[in-house]
C-alpha cells in the first residue's frame, strides 16, 4: 500500500502539511484539495477502525475534513504536527460517536452486563495493521499494555471500562497505558 501521506503536489509547490493549512486558512481550496489527498485515508481509516461501520466512518471523515477547512486558522505550527492535529480531531469524534451510540443502546436494551468484543478488536489489529513497524512494536509490549492501548485507542473504551474488562485496577490501567505508549514511542522512533 502506498503511504497516504506522500501523495499530492501542492498548487504552489508547497508540500508541507502545516504550510498547506496556512494557505487553507486563507480560503485556498486548491491547497485544501491537497490536504484532502493526504489526510482523507488516515482520517477515514481511523474512524472505520473505531466505529466499524463504513457509512458512519464516512460521515465522521466528512465532518472532520470539513472541520479542518473551517478551523484551519486555529492550527498553530508550533503546537504539534498538522497530521497529529487532524488525527486527534478524527479520533475524538469517532470515540464520541461510539460512546453516544453505546449510550443509546444501553438505554434501549437496559442490559446489565456489557458484552465486550475486545478479543476480536485486539486480534484484528494484530493481524491487519498495515504498518509493519507498529505491529512489530505492539508485540514488544506486555500483554496488558497492548490490550489497554488497543481497547482504548481502537476500541473506543474509557480507561474505566478497560479496567473492568481486564480485571485490572484503575491506577494500573493508567500506568500501563502511559508506559505502553512510552515503550511504543521508543520502539517507533520520533518521526513517522
Amino acid at each position: 500500500m502506498t503511504d497516504p501521506l506522500s501523495g499530492g503536489a501542492a498548487p504552489s509547490g508547497v508540500s508541507d502539511l502545516g504550510a498547506l493549512l496556512v494557505l487553507v486558512a486563507r480560503g485556498d481550496q486548491d491547497a485544501f484539495e491537497v490536504v484532502y489527498q493526504r489526510l482523507s485515508g488516515p482520517v477515514y481509516g481511523l474512524a472505520l477502525r473505531v466505529v466499524r461501520d463504513p457509512a458512519q466512518a464516512e460521515e465522521i471523515a466528512q465532518e472532520v475534513l470539513v472541520e479542518l477547512w473551517r478551523k484551519a486558522s486555529h492550527y498553530r505550527p508550533g503546537k504539534g504536527a498538522a497530521t497529529a492535529w487532524a488525527l486527534t480531531m478524527a479520533h475524538r469524534r469517532a470515540v464520541d460517536r461510539v460512546r453516544s451510540t453505546q449510550a443509546d443502546r444501553d438505554r434501549e436494551e437496559r442490559t446489565a452486563a456489557p458484552s465486550p468484543d475486545y478479543d476480536e478488536v485486539a486480534e484484528e489489529v494484530g493481524t491487519r495493521l498495515e504498518h509493519q513497524q507498529v505491529r512489530r512494536c505492539m508485540r514488544g509490549l506486555t500483554q496488558t499494555q497492548r490490550e489497554s492501548i488497543t481497547l482504548a485507542y481502537y476500541g473506543g473504551y474509557t480507561y474505566r471500562e478497560v479496567s473492568e474488562l481486564l480485571g485490572v485496577g484503575l491506577a494500573a490501567v493508567k500506568t500501563r497505558m502511559r508506559d505502553g505508549l512510552i515503550r511504543l514511542r521508543d520502539c517507533l522512533g520520533a518521526q513517522p
Partner: peptide, 21 residues
C-alpha cells in the same frame, strides 16, 4: 505521547470511498 497515537492512527489508514472527495 501524541506522536505515538498519531502512529497508531496512521497504521490503520484506509482509502475512503471515492465519492467522499
Amino acid at each position: 505521547l501524541r506522536e505515538t497515537t498519531t502512529r497508531l492512527a496512521l497504521a490503520v489508514a484506509h482509502p475512503p470511498p471515492p465519492e467522499l472527495r
